[in-house]
Design a binder for these strands. Structure first.
Lengths: 342, 342
DNA sequence: GTTAGCACTCTTGTACAAGGAGTGCTAAAG
DNA sequence: CTTTAGCACTCCTTGTACAAGAGTGCTAAC
């Protein structure tokens, strides 16, 4: 299947690159001018005809030039494309863009998405670290007034969240201490996702008369724990997609699709390897049939922590964009690790 | 200037309402059918002709029907429109949408924007509370390990922010205490926006040899204070705008405009009254010439705290949308106040 | 295997006519 | 002075026709 003649490879690569650059089909004559092949246009036509028969090229209509099919893009990405070095300016931009958010992993990912979409002019998607492996590391309760307190929670992957908590009854020292005991014994060291309303009820049952005073705090800690476990999906720079004329009237449909949590979640979790490119109809959703999705995982301490990627038209500039995404995930992983050092 | 005959008012209102509903111009004949006016089409034509001369109506071309001009919309909004009651379902949706975020004013505003854009199918903009009047209410430092600590900051308007802070030297009890003293004496009670790198340097100067150990914390507290003072601008549901065909090719331009912080900021801060409608070219930016902006302020304890509003095509459904926005700002203000009660 | 030549196909742009919707004006009626 | 019928006029839209241009596929010769 990957046994294309050298010449076919040159022709296929040329069609893909031309289409990526211009968005226009290319004909046999123009292709010769571009590649410098020393054969006649008829020969190229024969080759293109075979490439069409093999499914690598499409024709918008009988007498237009050729454009790459999904299979053509796939072959290009897997076998023909050069992986460019990330240029210094882009590296700087990425570093500068996320440096300000060190110490807060969620902000870090947000900034990373922003800078990536700005750099590439496509839409960036990403997931914050979290999920199953998030463990509660620390819980603090700080009284603010007699009827309110700040609750702070820190997780193993460096996520820090806090919220104000209003109380039904005055906060006594005894209640405070009791809360600390509970936090220490039944919450710290646990997976954040385990801490549900149900598990709180077991705790509450053992409290006797303090249950009323404690209730708002337990509810708040529960909510807070869940929000740290919750992986957030970020979408940045969607408006970049509008500049791509291939979407035309489908732009609205695509936007609506991207703004729905659940399918987007499935798209992201569907990616397999370290870096994964999904082209057109390879996507599980019809709404992405005109798009390519590039997704790379960032890892923290050797574990997959989340993904950062791009969504754009199939004629994305793969050669420069893929290295960018790869570089960025590396950078993000390292920065999160740094923040976690003891 | 507002002295239009009753009949002219009926006609103007009818043109506006028809255009809001259908997006199409309306002619004299169809207008009679719609309004039930018992005059001939020629009479209506004369009236329309005068309304055009007065600048309330436009003609896309000589032989099309009439559409409202900016001035026509203005007259409609100011004098002709009915203010509908907010229906129960919408009220419920708004309440439900923001209830889950009580206790965190920023989340509250975010959810409010989401629910508003969902409800109206326009783009929602909003600003979080903050700005000049934000006063630091409380600062806490919680050691996590020898080399890191959590820093928590609470403001007068209920915003609670925290971040992890990495230290150069081990955290001793003395350093902790020293930090508390500084926080208590020079930070708490101050306006958050006053706390700049410069003001920190004055503090640092008085520290002697502890300055090195203290530096990361001071930098962090400074950054945190500034981020609480910083008003955030939220934009939600931009993709709703794509469904409005009047934008056509300008959709991209509009989106790009809306995604820039600074001009959007100016648009919002430009609103005057309690609730402000800006139509088409009344906007200070050309990019909004095809849009209307509705902005309402929410207030906390009698002070303006921020704005929530909508951006949509000029043919927005003002009658239902304006009451919605007004209701929502009321709700938001009350909820923030509740969270602040001692 | 390669190439020149040619008929064929399909898109794009222009031109033009027919049809329709709506106006503005005039002159007569209320 | 207001209202109305009537009519010519304008402009958009739709459909058709036609020519130009680009590119292909095929055939036959090299």
């Amino acid at each position: 299947m990957s046994q294309l003649s050298e010449r076919k490879k040159i022709i296929l690569a040329s069609v893909v690159e031309h289409f990526i650059k211009t968005g226009e089909p290319i004909g046999s004559k123009e292709l010769i001018a571009k590649t410098g092949l020393s054969v006649s246009s008829a020969t190229v036509r024969n080759e293109m005809s075979e490439l069409s028969a093999l499914g690598y090229l499409d024709q918008p209509h009988t007498s237009a030039g050729r454009v790459p099919s999904d299979k053509g893009y796939r072959y290009y990405v897997d076998n023909l494309m050069h992986h460019r070095e990330v240029d210094e300016i882009s590296k700087r931009m990425m570093q500068a863009g996320i440096a300000s958010a060190q110490g807060d992993p969620e902000k870090l990912i947000e900034h990373a998405s922003e800078v990536l979409s700005e750099l590439t002019h496509y839409a960036a998607v990403s997931t914050t670290p979290g999920g199953e492996c998030t463990v509660i590391r620390r819980i603090e309760l700080v009284p603010v007034s007699t009827r309110s307190a700040m609750l702070v929670i820190l997780t193993s992957n460096g996520i820090l969240k806090s919220r104000l908590c209003r109380l039904e009854t005055p906060l006594t020292a005894r209640i405070c201490e009791s809360f600390y005991n509970i936090a220490q014994s039944t919450l710290v060291g646990r997976q954040a996702s385990e801490i549900s309303v149900a598990s709180m009820q077991t705790v509450a049952a053992s409290l006797g008369s303090d249950v009323l005073a404690m209730f708002p705090m337990l509810a708040a800690v529960c909510e807070l724990a869940q929000s740290t476990a919750q992986i957030q999906i970020l979408l940045e720079g969607q408006s970049n997609l509008l500049a791509n004329s291939e979407y035309g009237d489908n732009a609205l449909e695509l936007m609506n699709f991207l703004n729905k949590e659940e399918p987007l979640n499935r798209v992201i979790s569907n990616s397999k390897g370290e870096l994964d490119v999904t082209i057109g109809n390879e996507n599980i959703y019809r709404q992405l049939e005109k798009s390519s999705v590039i997704l790379a995982k960032y890892s923290v301490r050797g574990q997959d922590a989340g993904s950062i990627g791009l969504i754009g038209p199939k004629r994305m500039d793969y050669e420069t964009v893929i290295p960018n995404v790869r570089y960025l995930t590396g950078l993000v992983g390292r920065l999160i690790e740094q923040a976690l050092e003891e």
